[in-house]
C-alpha cells in the first residue's frame, strides 16, 4: 500500500512538471502562463488517461482492480436490495436451467448406455407394409428373426404388459411387471444380486411359475430380507417362486410410467411363448426386441446396420 502511494505521488509530480515544462516553452515564445497551461492541458487530452496507461503496467494491478470491482459490486448490491434480489434470482435460474439441461443431455446423449457392449446393442422394430408405421414386434417375427438372422449374436424380448397383484400380506399391492424371454438379462449384462437367472426350460408354457424381483421391489415390499429366494408369492391368485433378485444398479426403463409414477419394473416372469405359435398370437405386436450385433470383421457400425437391415427383411419375406 505504501509503495503504491509513493508510486502515485511520483507519477503525479512527474506529469505536473512535464506539463509545466511544456508551458514554459510557450511562455518563452510570448504566451501568458495561464494560456500556455490551458493549451498544453487541452493538447494532452487529460492526464488521467496517461496515468492509467502507466498504472496498467504495474505488476499486480489486475488483482487490485479486480478487488475494487468486487467491492464496488457489493456496495451497489447492498444499496439496492430489490435489484440484488433480481440479479441473484436470474443467476440462480440460469445456473439451474443449465444444470438441468446438461444433466439430461449427459444422460441421454453423452453417456453410453450402462450396459456392456452398448455400442452393439439395438432395439429392433417392425414396420408395417400396409401403412409404413413402426411398431413393437409380433412374437412370430421375433421367432423368425432369432432363428434366421445372422447379424446378431443374441436376441431377447420383453413384454411390459402384465401387472401383478401381490396378495398374502395384510394389504394387496400392485406391482408393475414384465415378461421376458430367456437370455434377456445376460444380454443387458445383469448378474443377480441374489439367486439365479431364469433357466431355459422355465421359458415354456406351464413351467414359468417363477419370478425375479427388482432390487427396489425387494426392499420396498419384502424389507430386503436375505432369505427371499425360494419364497412362494401369490400373484394374481397364482403361486410363483422367487428365484432371483436383480442388482441395485440394474435399470430398464419402461416407456409408460404407471400411476405410482414408477417407470421401472418391480417383477419379471419368463414369457413362455407357446411353440408353435397359435394363430391369434401372429396378429399381436407387443414385444420390445433387443439384439446384440456380431463383431465380425472391421466393418463400421453404419454398414453393419444396413447389412443387418437387409438380412432382416430377407428373414421376414
Amino acid at each position: 500500500m505504501f509503495r503504491k502511494r509513493k508510486f502515485e505521488q511520483e507519477l503525479d509530480e512527474e506529469l505536473r512538471s512535464y506539463i509545466e515544462l511544456l508551458a514554459e516553452e510557450r511562455v518563452r515564445r510570448g504566451m501568458s502562463l495561464e494560456d500556455a497551461l490551458r493549451e498544453v492541458r487541452r493538447e494532452l487530452g487529460g492526464m488521467d488517461r496517461v496515468k492509467e496507461n502507466v498504472r496498467d503496467l504495474r505488476p499486480g494491478v489486475f488483482l487490485e482492480t479486480l478487488g475494487q470491482d468486487v467491492r464496488y459490486t457489493f456496495r451497489a448490491l447492498r444499496r439496492n436490495r430489490a435489484f440484488a434480489f433480481v440479479v441473484l434470482l436470474t443467476l440462480a435460474l440460469g445456473i439451474g436451467a443449465n444444470t438441468a439441461m446438461f444433466t439430461v443431455v449427459d444422460g441421454v446423449v453423452l453417456k453410453p448406455l450402462a450396459y456392456p457392449d452398448s455400442d452393439r446393442l439395438l432395439t429392433l422394430w417392425e414396420r408395417s407394409r400396409s401403412d409404413g408405421l413402426e411398431s413393437t414386434v409380433s412374437p412370430a417375427n421375433f421367432y423368425d428373426w432369432r432363428e434366421q438372422s445372422r447379424s446378431f449374436s443374441k436376441m431377447a424380448a420383453i413384454d411390459s404388459y402384465p401387472d401383478f397383484i401381490l396378495n398374502g400380506s395384510a394389504e394387496s399391492q400392485r406391482l408393475s411387471g414384465a415378461d421376458v424371454t430367456a437370455g434377456f438379462f445376460p444380454l443387458l449384462g445383469a448378474r443377480m444380486e441374489l439367486g439365479r437367472d431364469f433357466l431355459a426350460e422355465e421359458d415354456r408354457p406351464g413351467r414359468n411359475q417363477v419370478v425375479i424381483l427388482s432390487y427396489g421391489a425387494w426392499q420396498r415390499y419384502f424389507g430386503g430380507r436375505a432369505d427371499i429366494v425360494g419364497w412362494v408369492l401369490t400373484l394374481n391368485n397364482a403361486p410363483y417362486t422367487v428365484v432371483g433378485v436383480l442388482p441395485r444398479d440394474f435399470a430398464f426403463v419402461s416407456k409408460a410410467s404407471d400411476y405410482h409414477g414408477r417407470n421401472q419394473f418391480d417383477i419379471f416372469r419368463p414369457m413362455a411363448l407357446p411353440v408353435p405359435l397359435p394363430a391369434w398370437l401372429r396378429g399381436t405386436h407387443p414385444l420390445c426386441v433387443l439384439a446384440q450385433m456380431k463383431t465380425r470383421g472391421r466393418a463400421s457400425p453404419p454398414s453393419r446396420f444396413s447389412s443387418a437391415r437387409w438380412l432382416m427383411s430377407a428373414a421376414r419375406s
Binding site: E14, L15, L44, V50, V54, L57
Partner: peptide, 15 residues
Amino acid sequence: VKAGSLFPALYRLEH
C-alpha cells in the same frame, strides 16, 4: 512522442 505513449514506455524500460 505524446505523453500517453512516452510515460508508459519510460516506466516499462525503468522496470
